[in-house]
Design a protein around this nucleic acid. Structure first.
Lengths: 114, 114
DNA sequence: ATAGATACCTTGCCGCGAGAGGTATCGGCT
DNA sequence: AGCCGATACCTCTCGCGGCAAGGTATCTAT
């Protein structure tokens, strides 16, 4: 409860970051993330939609409904609060990966990577 | 079961990688990881010990008991299988972080540098 | 003697992420 | 007309990883 496993919140991070380039709707977001990560990370709708709802509930996002071709789309956009939150998440993620990269990369012998 | 949340297995990775520089016992491992990550990542004993047992069960590690100063220590060392497994984990982790770094780093402008 | 470090271990909880399933509309194919 | 795949939204439940907390025992220093 206090420490939600230092590794969590990546989907949240990805969603928020992707939304930084402009408002998007859920379905679009799912594919955008897939594309942005070169298919390496595929968040399903079962991850994205609930996250979107939670994020909006917390005031990180605001939504507006739009009717396009008879289909309803719900566009989400970052709020100021969401932007600040995102900055923190990015910083945190960078810390984590730096730390792990340190532990993984540099030890006794240099890795023969790349 | 098929896809155990692309983010999992980091403790496992850290443990295996730390063990690469030589055999260690659980308690030592906990502190070593703490130190190697500059206190950024602190795996508790409740994470490390079960992981160690599982890893041994799977043949990634082998252990030997050693008596030092009247205290029992269980030293764990990588097996060949463990080494191969570790290599895979590292590769996978690099993919993930590259992908996320790509999505996070390059906002609008593509970062497909060669 | 008491407390803290060393060293091992297990239990139970919980939240995240994933899959599967559900509704509905649109377009293309036959 | 009928069908299917893509588009677009949603929710439920399950599994499991990671964590805190708790439990045992020995050694050392006060």
């Amino acid at each position: 409860m206090a420490n939600p496993s230092f590794m969590n919140g990546v989907p949240e991070l990805l969603i928020l970051r992707t939304l930084e380039s402009g408002e998007m709707y859920g379905y679009e977001l799912v594919q955008a993330i897939r594309a942005r990560t070169n298919q390496a990370i595929k968040l399903g709708e079962g991850v994205v939609y609930p996250a979107l709802h939670a994020l909006e509930r917390e005031g990180m996002l605001k939504s507006r409904r739009k009717l396009v071709n008879g289909r309803t789309r719900v566009y989400y956009a970052l709020t100021r609060k969401g932007e600040k939150h995102l900055a923190g998440l990015v910083r945190h993620w960078q810390q984590i990966t730096d730390a792990i990269g340190l532990a993984i990369g540099g030890t006794a012998h240099a890795a023969t990577m790349l």
